[in-house]
Structure formats: C-alpha cells, structure tokens
Amino acid sequence: MSETQKCCCGGKNPLEQLDQALVKYKGDKGTLIPALQEAQNIYGYLSKEVLERIACTLEIPISQIYGVVTFYSQFHLNPRGRNIIRVCAGTACHVRGGKAILKAIEDKLGVPAGATTSDLRFTIETVACIGACGLAPVMMINDDTHGRLTPEHVVEILERYK
C-alpha cells in the first residue's frame, strides 16, 4: 500500500479494487485507455476520484486524462442508469417515427436524451444506427433489441426493466 499512501488522493481506500486493477498497467506506455475501461467496468462510470487515482498511479496528468475521457463516447463522467436505452436515430428509424419513440421515452422518464433518471434506473441515449433497419423504429435496452415500436408499446416495454 505504500504507493497509494504516497498518492495525493491518500486516506482510507474505497478504491481498493481499482488499485488492484491498476497494478498491471503501471510503468507501461499506452495503457491509459484499457485502464479507463477497466475502471469504468468496476464503478459503472469514471468519477473524479477514480480519475485522480488513475492519474497518480499511471503518472499521467489529470488534464490529459480528462481530454481522453471526454473525447471517446465510451467513457462516462457521471453515474449511469442500471438500464441503458439506446434509441435509434438513423435514417430508417427517423422516417418511421423514431422521433416520437424518443419523445415518448423522454416524457415517460422525465429526462432528456443523454441523461439519467434520478433513481438511476434508466439512461437514455440516441445512436445513429444499430443495424436493424428492417425493424424500424427500433431501440435497444441493455442487450435486448425492440423493434416495430409505437409510442404506446414503448412505455409498456420500459415497465419490464427495474
């Protein structure tokens, strides 16, 4: 633990799992993105504390880490919902009423696309195409694909995810 005690974040260690994960990345170049991915797998998102610990351990300036995290859409700085809704905004879904699907979800959950409900149940995202144009309008919730949606139908589907 001497390394973490030396670390500027110091103190008791709620980040123990992260520290264990980071051991294998220390001292190597080009390990920032895998380290960020692993940290996000552990905590669901990348908090300031987590990023500061990664900065200390890998000796990479926190500003540069922030740059990488905000560049890639795979990384998230805020807590995410237990269920991730991806509403397709691609061409086929758009012409078949994708916008109304998104609006129905936003209205039902009370948060806009890109946001997470305060109970952390859902995060709403839009994607450009999920390759299921034949089922348009379409959305994914976690790994499930839901097609030929109507605004009414969508609200029912949401009930299945707690």
């Binding site: 300036p61 926190i62 500003s63 540069q64 922030y66 740059g67 905000t70 560049f71």
Partner: peptide, 9 residues
C-alpha cells in the same frame, strides 16, 4: 505543470 488539455471533440 500540465494544466490544459484538449477536451471533447
């Protein structure tokens, strides 16, 4: 001192 970085895209 590394204060600045490019962020977002």
């Amino acid at each position: 001192v590394n204060i600045y970085s490019f962020a977002n895209r």
